[in-house]
């Protein structure tokens, strides 16, 4: 009797099922891969939109003007008060002279307008960046109530747009991810169940010759794990190419949009793919094999 037969068999204990059911294993891996790519693509699109919104938020500044007649010490007190205000991230002081210079540089063709005034008509001002744009209106109310504040200006429509988009992204994104996850779980569990069904002979024989449930379960769990790992690795590689050669180029071609670099998201994305893939594969196998182990 050939020696390698036994060794091959023992090595192949867990691989027996895969050998037995290669088409089903391929189907399971394919379904998992497609689901992960769909989920991953959606998350990447959301991240790009979210990063764009963050940048819009940073650009969306609030201007606070002290009275034109305010003294240096009053302006200094106001700066301290502004810095202590909740939700204010950065306070930048722009003196009236710096303001005039900025105006001249921004509107060079109208530079002589400033000269026509003789004395600089611009007030001192503070440019504020907020930590959370969605709390703009509450912060504006606080700022307006501060002592030594003459006027507060901000772009209400831009703020509203960012708030709305953020809200839509969160709700729609959450819903789409949830729907995709449910569909993936459903398809994968059905695929594994079908695969398990075709192995009922193998499981039945194992039970009849006195295999413990843990022994029967083990190869299927290992296979679920392998399906999860292989599916997530394939999905990750495909996602990389889709992102680099598709999404990133598309996003980059739109003015104002700066795509999130793949390097920034490579590790979390790999971790998430592996985690989702392995959990789905192992859970799918464990749940499906349970049915066959009942007495």
């Amino acid at each position: 009797m050939s020696k390698n037969k036994v060794t091959k068999h023992s090595w192949g204990r867990s691989m027996l099922s895969t050998k037995f059911n290669k088409p089903m294993a391929i189907v399971s891996v394919s379904v998992l891969t497609v689901c992960l790519i769909l989920l991953g693509s959606f998350v990447l699109v959301s991240m790009n939109i979210s990063s764009y919104l963050d940048r819009l938020g940073e650009a969306n500044v609030v201007r606070v003007y002290p009275p034109y007649t305010a003294t240096q010490s009053e302006v200094y007190d106001l700066k301290t008060a502004l810095e202590a205000t909740e939700n204010v991230a950065v306070v930048t002081y722009v003196s009236k002279d710096e303001g005039a210079e900025e105006f001249k540089q921004s509107y060079s063709e109208y530079g002589e307008i400033m000269d026509g005034f003789g004395e600089n008509p611009l007030p001192d001002k503070f440019i504020l960046t907020l930590k959370d744009v969605t709390k703009t209106s509450e912060t504006i109310e606080v700022l307006q109530a501060l002592d030594g504040v003459e006027q507060v200006t901000w772009s209400a429509s831009a703020t509203q747009t960012i708030i709305t988009l953020n809200r839509v992204l969160k709700v729609a994104g959450g819903a789409i991810v949830a729907i995709l996850a449910v569909i993936s779980a459903f398809i994968i569990s059905n695929t594994i169940r079908a695969s398990m069904q075709s192995r009922s002979l193998e499981i039945g024989i194992m039970r009849l010759v006195g295999a413990k449930n843990s022994f029967i379960r083990k190869p299927f769990i290992i296979e679920g794990f392998a399906i999860g790992v292989i599916g997530s690795v394939i999905a990750y590689v495909i996602e990389y190419f889709i992102y680099i050669y598709g999404m990133q180029k598309l996003v980059g071609s739109i003015e104002l949009l700066k795509p999130v670099s793949f390097g920034e998201i490579a590790l979390p994305l790999a971790g998430a793919f592996l985690l989702v893939g392995v959990i789905t594969g192992v859970l799918g196998s464990a749940i499906s094999v349970r049915k066959h182990l009942k007495v």
Binding site: K5, V6, H9, V209, G210, A211, F215
Partner: peptide, 10 residues
């Protein structure tokens, strides 16, 4: 392998 299977299982 079919016969060996019963031994491997236990």
């Amino acid at each position: 392998e079919n016969v060996a299977f019963a031994m491997r299982v236990i």
